[in-house]
Structure formats: structure tokens, C-alpha cells
């Protein structure tokens, strides 16, 4: 039987090989790895460095620069709440406080049951139907406290 880490490595190498011929392949590779595993397994960074012929430090630097990439798995769901101005103007701050309270976590935190990770986001382009949120890939506009409570209950099912 293959160990988990060799499995990750072989899947990662498959992805890297497929994308490394692109111009500027690093972000597409990191995105694809995160899509595949739900995070970018740290052991894949040296594999990327080797394949692209750049230093590990450089890969690490890029990986840490961007807010999107995670070095460990998120919860089963990811709830992103918009914290930018248009959403603030429609009571977004109070909703954000309510969300943290309902879920018992702070920004970037994951509930103990692994159900949901809460992320701040700065504008979803839904500013004319603020406050806005995104639950996994589902966009939500005119979020209110009631809907937030439903989401909080739903994600824990």
C-alpha cells in the first residue's frame, strides 16, 4: 500500500508536470494543488522548486505572499464575509461580529468540529447588493442576521 505522503507527491508531480510548460506557471500550479488537496501540502513546495528550477525560498515566498493559499486543510465549508466599504455601509461589521459569535471562531479560524472556516474578503463585486458573502462557491447578497443563522446551522449538518 502507498503511504499518504507518496500519494500526495505523485498526484502533485502529475499536476506540476501538466502545468510547468505554461508561461509563468507558479500561480496556476499552486491553485491547482489547492483545488486538488484543499490546501497546498508543504511537502509539494520542494517538488515545485525542482520542476521549475527555482529556489525553495522563492516558492515559499510566493506561497506565503498570497492570502488564498493555505498550508493546512480548511473546514468542510469556507464562509467568506466581505469586510470592505460597500458592505460596511449596509451593516457588514455587525454581521461579521455576529458570524464570529455564532461560530465561536475568529477570522481565519475553523470550528472545532471542522465544519467551517471563516475568512474575511475585501469585495466580491456584489457591492450593489451588500452585505455580501460567499459560502464555498455560492455567492450571497443582501445577507442578514437571519440568513447568517441559517448558514451557521446548515454548515454544521
Amino acid at each position: 500500500m502507498q503511504s499518504a505522503s507518496t500519494d500526495i507527491a505523485s498526484r502533485a508531480i502529475g499536476i506540476i508536470d501538466q502545468l510547468k510548460g505554461k508561461e509563468g506557471p507558479l500561480l496556476p500550479i499552486l491553485h491547482e494543488l489547492q483545488d486538488e488537496f484543499g490546501y497546498v501540502p508543504p511537502e509539494t513546495l520542494p517538488l515545485i522548486a525542482q520542476a521549475l528550477n527555482i529556489s525553495r525560498a522563492e516558492v515559499h515566498g510566493v506561497f506565503t505572499f498570497y492570502h488564498d493559499y493555505r498550508d493546512h486543510p480548511a473546514g468542510r465549508h469556507v464562509l467568506k464575509l466581505c469586510r470592505a466599504e460597500a458592505c460596511q455601509s449596509m451593516g457588514g461589521d455587525a454581521l461579521a461580529d455576529r458570524a464570529r459569535q455564532l461560530l465561536g471562531i475568529d477570522w481565519h479560524g475553523t470550528t472545532a468540529d471542522g465544519a467551517v472556516t471563516l475568512e474575511p474578503v475585501y469585495c466580491l463585486g456584489l457591492c450593489a447588493c451588500a452585505p455580501a458573502a460567499m459560502l464555498d462557491d455560492e455567492v450571497i447578497g443582501r445577507l442578514d442576521a437571519e440568513q447568517l443563522e441559517e448558514i451557521a446551522a446548515e454548515v454544521r449538518l
Binding site: P25, L26, L27, L52, Y122
Partner: peptide, 21 residues
Amino acid sequence: GAGAYVCGEETALLESLEGRR
């Protein structure tokens, strides 16, 4: 992109497209 507002600045965007910070 990968969640960095500054990558809207044109030269940061080019860096990002090239696969850098």
C-alpha cells in the same frame, strides 16, 4: 490571482503573472 489587492497595480500584476510575489 490569489487574493492580493496590490496585484491590481500593473507592475505587481505582471510580477504575479510571471509567478512571483
